[in-house]
Simulated assay, not measured.
Amino acid sequence: MSVWMILPVSLPVFTITGIWVVYAMALYNQHVCPVHNWLYNESCEEQLPSQRGPELCCTLDNIPLISKCGTLPPESCFFSLICSTGAFLVMLVTLLRYAHVIEKHQNCVLNMASLSTGWICAAGLAMVGNFQVIEHL
Rank of each mutant, 00 (worst) to 15 (best):
S2T: 12
S2Q: 10
P8K: 07
P8H: 03
V9P: 14
L11N: 04
P12G: 10
V13P: 01
T15L: 02
T15G: 06
T17M: 07
T17Y: 05
T17D: 00
G18Q: 00
V21I: 02
V22H: 00
Y23C: 07
A24P: 00
A24C: 02
A24N: 01
L27I: 03
Y28T: 05
Y28V: 07
H31K: 13
V32Q: 09
C33Y: 11
C33L: 15
V35G: 13
H36S: 11
H36C: 15
N37A: 15
N37R: 15
W38V: 11
L39N: 14
L39F: 13
L39C: 12
N41E: 10
E42S: 12
E45N: 13
E46L: 14
Q47D: 15
Q47N: 03
L48K: 10
P49V: 15
S50G: 01
S50L: 11
R52K: 14
R52P: 02
G53K: 06
G53V: 06
P54V: 05
E55N: 11
E55A: 13
L56T: 01
L56C: 06
L56P: 01
C58I: 03
L60W: 09
L60P: 00
D61C: 09
D61W: 09
D61P: 01
N62P: 00
N62Y: 07
I63W: 09
L65I: 00
I66R: 09
I66Y: 03
S67Q: 04
K68Q: 12
K68E: 07
C69D: 01
G70W: 01
P74I: 03
E75W: 02
E75L: 05
S76D: 01
S76I: 00
S76M: 00
S76R: 07
S76A: 00
C77S: 08
F78K: 00
L81H: 04
L81A: 10
I82C: 03
C83N: 12
T85A: 15
A87D: 13
A87F: 15
F88K: 00
F88N: 02
F88C: 05
L89D: 11
V90S: 11
M91L: 11
M91S: 12
L92T: 07
L95I: 07
L95N: 03
L96C: 09
L96K: 05
R97A: 06
R97I: 08
Y98S: 04
I102C: 07
K104Q: 14
K104N: 10
H105Y: 04
H105F: 08
Q106E: 12
Q106L: 03
N107W: 08
C108N: 15
V109P: 07
V109T: 11
L110I: 03
L110G: 12
M112G: 05
A113P: 04
S114Q: 14
L115E: 06
L115A: 01
S116C: 08
T117N: 06
G118E: 08
G118A: 03
G118P: 04
W119C: 04
W119Q: 11
W119H: 09
I120L: 14
I120G: 09
C121S: 11
C121A: 15
A123I: 10
A123N: 13
G124W: 08
L125R: 10
A126P: 08
M127E: 14
M127P: 13
M127N: 10
V128T: 08
G129T: 02
G129V: 07
N130G: 09
F131P: 07
Q132F: 05
V133P: 03
V133K: 13
I134F: 10
E135P: 09
H136A: 05
L137I: 06
